[in-house]
Simulated scan of single mutants.
Amino acid sequence: MHTKSRDNWVAAAFVAPFVIAYLVLFLYPTVRMIFLTFTDAPLIGTGGWVGFKNYLRLFNDKAYINAFWNTGYFVLLTVIPNTLLGLVFAMMVNRQKGYVQSLILAAFFLPYILPVSVVFRIWEWIMDYQFGIAQYALDAFYGERVAVFRNKAWAMPMIAFVTIWWTIGFNVLLFIAGLRNISQDMYDASALDGANRWKQFRFITWPLIWPVTALVLTIQLILQLKIFDQLYLLTLGGNVNNTMVLVQYIYKQAFQLNKGGYGATVAFSLFMIIVVVSVLQYQVLRAKPR
């Protein structure tokens, strides 16, 4: 009994830092944020109790609805393309051997380790209206130069492209890890039975790589629902109403307009959207492809 009690105290001592950090850094701020949604408090300070007024305001707030649809549009532009391209590139890289594979993999992963400020500067320079090297291609094929990050039709797709370029290396690494867990003997046996590469992918690779695919889809969905950094930097000075997303709207309400209560309400709505969509996606992706 003495040994068991001592083991319990040792286990509690190891667990305690995590529990304390969880309570202080996550649970308390979350509860505090939910409380703020029922007030008209500024960013710093207390406010009066307004009940569900902030929640009712969301349904009549055209800027919030616009930010909601912009976020959904960005998710459609990035989540599935980023996942599928990651799988395709991973399969291509996995066929290489030795230092060639290492070099190609490093080339894919290098953008992922860059901070968002560097990514912003790279693509701002590439797409610069006057001096950007990509503008020569646009002029040749499109007929004119385009300020892509200020243009309503071009902004979101171009930022989605930059995001995929920036983050696809992580997806490639995850898929390669999954592909390397598939035994080569399965491919050799199927080849003896006359299976071509498409049949090998359809009946071996795709079913066995599906758990990794579901993981990548879930990670990408959560990340892109929280899109802010690159979009805010690349469209700075442009027509923000055309590219305003939910996190940017939270920033505007809380930090620019000093409406802490309403900003917390928008933040909590985004939190619930992420929870609901992630759970629904998880339930859908639990079914393995046949």
Rank of each mutant, 00 (worst) to 15 (best):
T71D: 05
A267F: 10
V79S: 06
N94S: 08
K152P: 12
A140V: 15
L103M: 06
K226L: 11
L138S: 10
V279Q: 09
W154F: 14
Y282M: 15
V15N: 07
F161K: 12
D139K: 15
V277M: 14
G260N: 01
N151Q: 07
F68Y: 10
A41V: 03
T205H: 00
M91F: 01
Y99A: 15
T218H: 08
Q96Y: 09
L103H: 04
V119H: 05
A191Y: 11
V212Q: 02
N70R: 03
I168D: 00
D188K: 07
I227G: 05
F271W: 08
A90T: 10
I168E: 00
N171G: 10
T83S: 10
S183I: 10
M92L: 14
T78D: 03
A67P: 13
Y73T: 15
W210V: 05
S117G: 12
L173N: 01
N70I: 02
A191S: 14
P157E: 03
M158N: 13
I204A: 04
N82K: 14
F170H: 00
I80S: 10
I80P: 05
T163Y: 01
N239S: 13
T39E: 02
M272E: 01
R121E: 14
A287G: 12
G98K: 03
L192W: 02
F271H: 03
T213C: 08
L223M: 11
Y22F: 15
Y129M: 11
F271L: 12
Y73A: 14
S5E: 01
P157V: 07
V172P: 00
Q253C: 09
L138W: 10
A153D: 13
F38A: 13
M92N: 03
L208G: 03
Y136R: 13
A177C: 08
V93H: 00
T235C: 05
A41F: 02
F141L: 14
L208T: 02
L77K: 07
